[in-house]
Nucleic acid binder design. Structure first.
Lengths: 150, 150
DNA sequence: CAACTAAGTTGATTTTTTTAACTTAGTATA
DNA sequence: TATACTAAGTTAAAAAAATCAACTTAGTTG
């Protein structure tokens, strides 16, 4: 993929990697256990084979997906997420929870297994070892530590 | 927008609303305070006027954005996020934090204002009033409460 | 040996996005 | 008062991306 968005912004640059049509859904489908080409194709109803092929190649190059031989004869591969691919989980969960709250029809929710109550996303400071409110968080430039808004 | 993805999945259906090229970046730019058409156009380097116009119309229809007159003469509008638009914040933050961890060049980070340490996303059970680990969370069908994997 | 399956590839068509020029209404400037 | 300028778009053409449908290749099964 060419660098589509040129903005100096984590979100834009992340979307340059995972923001194309179908890409996040492919990654999510691998995450939940669909690992062969045809399994993915079957599960992602509506995707075309060439697009799936292109996306998998791109994601492998970008280091989010890796292939692994699972039978030698005939040679068969399975697609797996790398660590950086698995690290998209909060993105999937944030989208899932937005959908839970705002879609006309909600398909999935996330509940705490102990009590079966729905969970939320929150922010955690590993140094203070506590949950912090969004209002206590600064989004700062990674370079100068100046306060930034993007 | 037509219903592009037909999958019975919160993530796919959410991406039907916000997954088109430029859409999340537009929403984020409104969130951080750019509210007029030309401000958005200037800040989203590379976007074309007609696409920005189309996206804003779509987002208004979908209820994530609303317009407000801010001068009568000449009539001038500003774009604002509705509550459902603002609720995308965890999505933006999850993308930002993925970028912090995995982009070659990181532009922004999020720190706890008290201690200046970088924060993480976590899951919170409002019923148990505590942070819960992802391993303690079930993603279940919203309808039948059966365990589901999508 | 014929049919089948997995994992794609190829080429044509359709849809989206980009590029660039134009519009419209009001404001400010010479 | 004509002229240029700005905000907020629209329009049309060209380019790029996605979809659709058919084909390929290598190995397997009946």
């Amino acid at each position: 993929m060419k660098e589509r968005y040129k903005l100096p912004c984590n979100i834009a640059q992340t979307l340059n990697i995972v923001g194309d049509r179908w890409t996040l859904l492919i990654l999510h489908d691998i995450l939940i256990g669909h690992q062969t080409f045809n399994e993915l194709k079957k599960n992602l109803e509506g995707i075309s084979a060439n697009l799936l092929s292109d996306r998998l190649k791109h994601l492998e190059k970008a280091g989010l997906v890796e292939t692994e031989v699972y039978t030698k004869h005939p040679p068969r591969y399975q697609y797996k997420l790398t660590e950086s691919g698995r690290d998209l989980e909060p993105v999937f969960d944030a989208l899932l929870l937005w959908g839970r709250d705002h879609l006309d029809h909600c398909y999935k929710k996330m509940v705490h297994s102990d009590c079966q109550h729905e969970v939320e996303l929150s922010y955690y400071c590993p140094s203070c070892k506590k949950t912090v409110d969004k209002s206590e968080i600064d989004t700062v430039s990674a370079v100068t530590s100046d306060l930034y808004t993007r």
